[in-house]
């Protein structure tokens, strides 16, 4: 018995094994709850029901299509947001007076959540893809631009002065001093922006979409197909974990390690 317990403890030390045990425990607990409550199909379908519905949606081809819709929206929206936001932040930071001038305004816009401006945008463009994209763009542009601007403002003035005394032009200062100096902020800001964009995609699809994961969980609730709602939630959670933990966080950590030498 003791030996068995020891083996069990050894198993616990392996992270993957932990995760498997955890998932099994959660699934069993979930099944038990689902079996005991009245009307589980409406309130909490069992894991089995959820996986059956996922098979169903896979066969119909709905799940892959919704999933790719959401991902494409995220990728397009956040890449445009980042591609515009990074140079914009750098340009504002080029001149100290301009930087001081726009800092409060950028701070204001990055704090106003994209979801809050959604009703305005929906009056402008109705329930359409443009509306969803506009909200995503808004939510990803301002956090990155604000972060880059803050990053540039934190670069010690002596670095800029040193480059100026060597005869560097505005463009060379931007390329050789401001851009690398703001690198850690660019990395952090990008992760923040993409995180906000991801939430905006889901919210936007719920409110004004025609397809996508957000649309799927919203209509699932409307049509009393709770299994689809839970399936969508699991997909949303898993996607963000993979994106954040295996792509964005490592990139951010590497960048800060490589370029974050500004802090003494």
């Amino acid at each position: 018995m003791d030996r068995l317990w020891w083996h069990f403890q050894q198993l616990l030390k392996i992270d993957a094994m932990n995760l498997v045990i955890l998932v099994i425990v959660v699934l069993i607990g979930w099944t038990i709850i689902s079996e005991t409550i009245p009307n589980p199909a409406r309130y909490l379908p069992s894991p089995l029901a959820v996986s059956l519905s996922s098979v169903d949606m896979l066969v119909k081809g709905l799940l892959p299509s919704y999933y790719s819709d959401t991902l494409v929206r995220l990728i397009i929206g956040s890449s445009i947001g980042l591609a515009a936001g990074i140079p914009f932040g750098l340009l504002l930071g080029l001149n100290k007076t301009v930087a001081d001038m726009f800092h409060p305004m950028m701070n204001f816009f990055q704090s106003v959540s994209g979801i809050a401006i959604f009703p305005i945008v929906v009056i402008w463009w109705g329930n359409s893809d443009t509306t969803v994209l506009a909200v995503i763009l808004y939510t990803s542009f301002f956090p990155i631009a604000f972060n880059v601007l803050s990053g540039v403002r934190e670069i010690p003035i002596r670095y800029v002065n040193a480059a100026r005394t060597m005869g560097a032009s505005k463009y060379q200062i931007m390329k050789d001093v401001l851009f690398p100096g703001a690198m850690p902020h660019i990395a952090t800001g990008s992760r923040l922006s993409i995180g906000f964009a991801w939430r905006a995609v889901i919210a936007g699809e719920m409110l004004a979409g025609r397809q996508g994961l957000g649309w799927m969980i919203f209509t699932g609730q409307d049509a009393d197909r709770t299994a689809e709602v839970i399936l969508g939630m699991v997909m949303i959670g898993l996607t963000w974990i993979i994106l954040d933990h295996y792509l964005l966080r490592p990139i951010e950590a590497d960048t800060i390690e490589r370029w974050g030498l500004v802090q003494r």
Binding site: R158, Y159, N161, A162, T165, M166, D176, G181, L261, V262
Partner: peptide
């Protein structure tokens, strides 16, 4: 570039 400056603090670029 006709005048080079050596600054008091370390003004060499850290990256």
């Amino acid at each position: 570039p006709d005048r080079g400056v050596v600054f008091q603090e370390h003004a060499i670029l850290p990256w």
